[in-house]
């Protein structure tokens, strides 16, 4: 039943660093540095990580908005083309952006934002498109009245609903959600997360959810991949990874998250240093901040280690496992 929907093989996205008067390329930021992941149809995969870990770049590469520098993106069993995507593929992969205000054209009425994909992807007559757009907006809780207004008259949560309706208009198989609720209040976030859950249950659309908020990922996703410095450090079923995080970074990330229940202990670890731009190269990307790092972590890139359905990239974890 479940077929391979998305597969990333050693995906790399580099941004050149230009320096000096002649703007010569002096180096590169390895925003995404060899990520391999997969997502089955109807599945939900969360990409967790902090600012600069490459999660947004990853999302845009998968959405076809920027071209990878290396590796391969496979969608629906075929290699995604570089550059412009054919309409048939374009329709199947949609995205919802973080900033609900910025993703809607301020000079375009709400209904036109939803009509646009219908015009491009379907051959319906204009009247049918309008009706379909209104129906889609109604499904996400936007009234016909609101549909005729401009985006700035809507609240942040309402704008995000419109963005979701626009993504649904294409009837995609995969929706990439790039921090869809991080600009919203908790109570509004709950509404949007419920809406996403409904969509997933009803339409079986696969989600690739990018978020820094582990609670949101835990709530929405079945599987999670934790990114640091452009690489996956740990991936697996949400229940497994969050119950027993193995990578030191995943542990630190989970420990840093305070729970609203004052009875649950909060013991954040102190990490050394600060997050820098990932430079790629050999070694573990987390080694500069890792409390467990030693010489080997700088000389040798950790290999994938499978433990109970999860994958961990860490020399220390591997050494612990060895005797057993």
């Amino acid at each position: 039943m479940s077929e391979r929907l998305l597969a990333l093989h050693d995906l790399q996205v580099r941004y050149p660093i230009r320096k000096g008067l002649l703007r010569r390329v002096a180096g590169a930021v390895h925003a995404v540095d060899g990520v391999s992941l997969r997502l089955d149809s109807g599945g939900t995969l969360g990409i967790a990580g902090e600012s600069g870990c490459g999660k947004t770049t990853l999302a845009r590469a998968v959405a076809g908005l920027l071209s990878p520098s290396g590796g391969r993106i496979e969608l629906f069993g075929e290699k995604a083309p570089q550059g412009h995507w054919p309409l048939a593929l374009r329709r199947r992969v949609q995205m919802v952006f973080q900033d609900p205000g910025g993703s809607l054209d301020p000079r375009q009425k709400v209904i036109d934002a939803v009509r646009e994909p219908l015009e491009a992807f379907t051959r319906q007559p204009p009247q049918a498109r309008t009706e379909r757009a209104l129906a889609l907006l109604a499904e996400v809780g936007i009234t016909a009245q609101q549909a005729l207004r401009y985006p700035h008259t809507l609240s942040g949560g309402q704008k995000q609903r419109v963005a979701i309706a626009r993504a649904l208009a294409a009837e995609p198989d995969l929706i990439i959600l790039d921090e869809p609720t991080s600009a919203l209040d908790v109570s509004v976030q709950a509404q949007i997360l419920n809406l996403l859950a409904d969509i997933h249950d009803r339409l079986g659309t696969a989600f690739l959810l990018i978020s820094h908020d582990l609670d949101v990922i835990a709530h929405v996703c079945e599987r999670v991949a934790v990114l640091y410095g452009g690489r996956v450090v740990e991936a697996g079923p949400v229940a497994e990874v969050f119950r027993e995080p193995r990578h030191p970074y995943t542990r630190a990330l989970l420990a840093a998250l305070p729970d609203p229940d004052p009875d649950r202990p909060w013991r954040p670890e102190t990490l050394k240093g600060t997050v820098g731009a990932p430079e790629g190269g050999v070694g573990c990307p987390f080694r500069q901040r890792c409390p467990l790092a030693d010489a080997r972590c700088g000389q040798e890139t950790p290999k994938a280690l499978e433990i109970e359905g999860s994958v961990v990239f860490c020399h220390r974890v591997e050494e612990q496992q060895r005797p057993a």
Binding site: R90, G102, F121, A170
Partner: peptide, 13 residues
């Protein structure tokens, strides 16, 4: 590079 321009690309424009 505004999000709404990217969104229009996603809408097949």
């Amino acid at each position: 590079n505004a999000d709404f321009v990217q969104a229009a690309r996603l809408s097949g424009r």
